[in-house]
């Protein structure tokens, strides 16, 4: 078996913690395969624009691409349910429950079917980085209510989430991560969300926005994916495919640990060093968001049979796990004590 080399372009800059995690995943594959799998990670824009990545991987312009399924909502609206079911698809599934749906609840089967049969692409998809929940984001001026947010132009992730915001009367635009701060600096947008404190800080959000709202429902779960061109994937021996799949699972665990520690570090810096005001999100945004989500999702399910199938699978799974997981997990967020470090 000869060495398989892959150039994988990501949708994040080199300073992103998720870029770092991808490099580590590549190094793991390299070590486990005894040097037979070499992955080279490229930053956003190195070969193509992030929004052109799906076509680029399908055609083999790059061997692999790192992105989020909801970026492909323009090809089929069901895309968003795999990486970014807003407010847990309106069911209350949190990030761990969503990963459980993927790995145990039939999600991965639907996910692979989505690329192979629905979009009919030459792509082997892998889920790698559960990075949610994402904060509502950054604002130039503070907001006190949903009404205030309606006056702004807000960078939201692409896909149905945009339609949910539209339903709420909020003006959303989507643009690749690297364009957000420049756009805000030049006045294209007044508010923006990206990923979380660590990556937002790395992109320099604190230089243009001075108000940060931590709680958001639009990406209560948010999973990054690696798409590999099928021809490149089929060059891998069965044991090497298993290595890549295992490295993807390992990357999930490492992502959880990064999320907690790196984001906490970044938040300290954002508040302390850069004097950004961190606020609680105005309460009237949440019920409006859930209402809009269910409306948009039900409407979409009526138009798109595959969307309906995935949504029903998630709702079914939520019926199983929410009564257990949500029931107990609330207590464990604080372990029953009023923590002195709150």
């Amino acid at each position: 078996q000869s060495t398989v080399r892959m150039k994988i372009q990501t949708a994040v800059p080199t300073s992103s913690i998720y870029f770092d995690l991808m490099k580590k995943m590549g190094e793991r594959c390299d070590k486990m395969s005894g040097g037979k799998i070499k992955m080279e990670m490229l930053p956003d824009g190195a070969v193509v624009n992030a929004f052109e990545m799906l076509d680029a991987v399908d055609k083999g312009v790059v061997d692999g691409g790192y992105s989020w399924t909801h970026y492909w909502s323009g090809k089929n609206t069901a895309a968003g349910l795999f990486s970014n079911p807003a407010a847990g698809a309106g069911t209350g599934m949190d990030q761990i429950s969503h990963v459980a749906w993927l790995l145990q609840g039939g999600g991965m089967t639907l996910y692979k079917r989505f690329y192979a049969e629905v979009l009919k692409l030459n792509i082997e998809p892998l889920m790698v980085q559960p990075m949610g929940p994402d904060p509502l984001g950054w604002f130039k001026t503070p907001i006190a209510s949903l009404e205030d947010m309606r006056k702004l132009k807000y960078r939201a992730p692409p896909g149905l989430v945009g339609e949910i915001f539209k339903e709420m009367g909020i003006n959303a635009v989507a643009m690749p991560g690297g364009e957000i701060v420049p756009a805000a600096q030049r006045g294209v947008i007044d508010a923006a969300e990206w990923i979380g404190p660590a990556d937002d800080l790395a992109l320099g959000f604190h230089t243009v926005f001075k108000h940060y709202y931590l709680q958001g429902l639009h990406q209560s779960t948010d999973v990054g994916e690696v798409l590999i061109n099928k021809r490149v994937w089929d060059k891998l021996a069965p044991e090497h495919k298993a290595i890549v799949e295992t490295a993807a699972l390992a990357c999930m665990t490492e992502t959880y640990s990064y999320n907690v520690q790196r984001n906490a570090q970044a938040l300290q810096k954002i508040q302390g060093e850069f004097k950004v005001q961190v606020h609680d999100t105005p309460k009237d945004i949440f019920p409006a968001f859930i209402k809009a989500t269910n409306l948009v999702y039900d409407r979409e399910a009526g138009k798109n049979p595959f969307f309906k199938e995935v949504l029903e699978s998630q709702r079914q799974f939520a019926k199983l796990v929410v009564p257990y997981w949500n029931k107990i997990v609330g207590l464990y967020y604080n372990l029953g004590i009023d923590s002195p470090y709150k």
Partner: peptide, 11 residues
């Protein structure tokens, strides 16, 4: 603006 995140220095 593009260089900032690449080197990790605020724009």
């Amino acid at each position: 603006i593009v260089m900032g995140p690449v080197v990790g220095v605020p724009a």
